[in-house]
């Protein structure tokens, strides 16, 4: 039997500075760690601690794993000091991931805020590898300021080149600057005048709690049913394997039963947005 607490050693191949407080780490684990998009892993900074992150790379890419990490506390700040060739540990994958089979043949609306783009990048990359399986993808992304946009090259240069009939991108910042020519406004404003067949689509949302809350309310206003809205719940985690109790939300272990839940499953639970 395998010891679920034992991390696999992984070498940092590359560190990409995305924004002033977000970095992407490209890791090469000692053994391949296959995952389904939306599943997460526990990253160990040796001797410092562990924290959960969702790979931001496509689940089709096997030999490397990308993690996009915001500097938020003890483990993440230690990670931000790491350099190429440093070693970290990886355990996982954990949780259920996105139910891609349920999305096939439908339109997919993706709404992301801040570092919430990390799992959504993995999700989006996985979708566009098999784009014919989906009707259309509308990707709405909001960042605080232009310098807070993660994956700038993908978001501003690469993805806009994708087939417009299949992929619509909507980008906004809360506050622009001198160079910003795009849209200004909260991410919820990208949901105005949507060109989406709401009944035949699913909405996949990931971002800070407050953003997820208002996005969910807006989606409901637009006519989405709670069971069409997929939310990534960010709760305190330690074990990641449904044992330690930290992540409990009602009867659910977010690490095991989630981290992605449809809104109908959780809407009546206490304090889901906290």
């Amino acid at each position: 039997m395998k010891n679920p607490y034992l991390p696999v050693s992984a070498e940092i191949l590359e560190v990409i500075e995305e924004t002033p407080n977000i970095k992407t780490f490209v890791l090469k684990p000692k053994e391949e760690i296959p995952f389904r998009t939306g599943q997460f892993m526990e990253l160990t900074v040796p001797g410092i601690g562990e924290a959960p992150f969702t790979p931001s790379s496509s689940s089709q890419v096997k030999e490397k794993l990308d993690f996009t990490v915001m500097n938020a506390g003890k483990v993440t700040s230690a990670l931000h000091k790491a350099k190429p060739s440093d070693k970290v540990g990886v355990r996982g994958p954990y949780g259920a991931g996105y139910p891609l089979d349920e999305f096939k043949g439908r339109e997919v609306l993706i709404v992301g805020g801040g570092v919430g783009l990390a799992p959504l990048r993995s999700f989006f990359l996985t979708l566009i590898e098999d784009i014919k399986l989906y009707q259309k993808i509308t990707f709405c992304y909001g960042a605080r300021t232009p310098s807070d946009i993660v994956y700038k090259n993908l978001v501003m240069n690469e993805w806009p080149k994708l087939d417009k009939k299949k992929v619509a991108l909507r980008l906004t910042v809360d506050a622009g600057d001198k160079t910003w020519k795009g849209k200004v406004g909260l991410v919820t404003t990208t949901l105005d005048n949507l060109n989406v067949d709401i009944g035949g689509s699913v909405a996949v949302v990931c971002g800070p709690p407050i953003m997820m809350k208002f996005t969910t309310f807006k989606l409901i206003d637009l006519g989405y049913k709670p069971e069409q809205i997929y939310l990534s719940m960010e709760k305190n985690m330690s074990c990641g394997i449904g044992k330690c109790g930290h992540c409990m939300m009602g009867k659910y272990y977010v690490c095991k039963d989630g981290p992605v839940f449809t809104y109908d499953k959780i809407k009546d639970l206490p304090a889901i947005w906290d």
């Binding site: 607490y5 034992l6 991390p7 160990t44 562990e50 938020a72 506390g73 993440t76 800070p208 709690p209 960010e234 709760k235 305190n236 330690s238 330690c244 109790g245 930290h246 992540c247 409990m248 939300m249 206490p270 304090a271 889901i272 906290d274």
Partner: peptide
């Protein structure tokens, strides 16, 4: 990696970075 007993009655048991706490 060490596993120690923890307790849901401690105030920060469920707190996440940034301060949110259900």
């Amino acid at each position: 990696k060490v596993r120690v007993w923890d307790a849901c009655q401690y105030p920060k048991f469920s707190q996440v970075a940034g301060g949110a706490n259900p």
